[in-house]
């Protein structure tokens, strides 16, 4: 599953809802429009019944779209979903930088 739960120092933190949405979106994106619910379930490490709730919510918010592929639904990320991911990862990056504290970001070598 994606590394949403990883903290700044590599330790795990509890996955929040925003992490889970990002996890699902990343796995769906990986399949380039052909994401089946079972494959997303394996990739996201989430049971199918729980995943369906997330997928329904993401569809309602316009972050995912669904199309019939060989008679079964297949999912793809929308531009809005990609926007969510861009913002999510950028914020996570900033938070990680802030959590490190000022002493960690200053190089020790000076000339």
């Amino acid at each position: 599953m994606p590394s949403g739960p990883d903290g700044a120092n590599g330790t795990s933190r509890r996955r929040e809802v925003s992490d889970l949405y990002a996890t699902v979106l990343e796995v769906v994106k990986h399949y380039h429009g052909a994401a089946r619910i079972t494959r997303v379930s394996y990739g996201a490490g989430m049971p199918v019944d729980r995943l369906r709730n997330f997928v329904e919510r993401l569809l309602a918010l316009g972050l995912l779209k669904s199309e019939e592929l060989d008679g079964r639904p297949a999912y793809d990320i929308t531009a809005r979903g990609q926007e969510y991911l861009d913002s999510y990862w950028k914020l996570r990056g900033y938070l990680e930088g802030l959590e490190r504290g000022p002493s960690d970001e200053r190089p020790s070598r000076r000339r």
């Binding site: 950028k90 990056g93 990680e96």
Partner: peptide, 11 residues
Amino acid sequence: GGSIDVGGVLS
């Protein structure tokens, strides 16, 4: 390497 684009933090 070539181009580097980092949205958040680069170390």
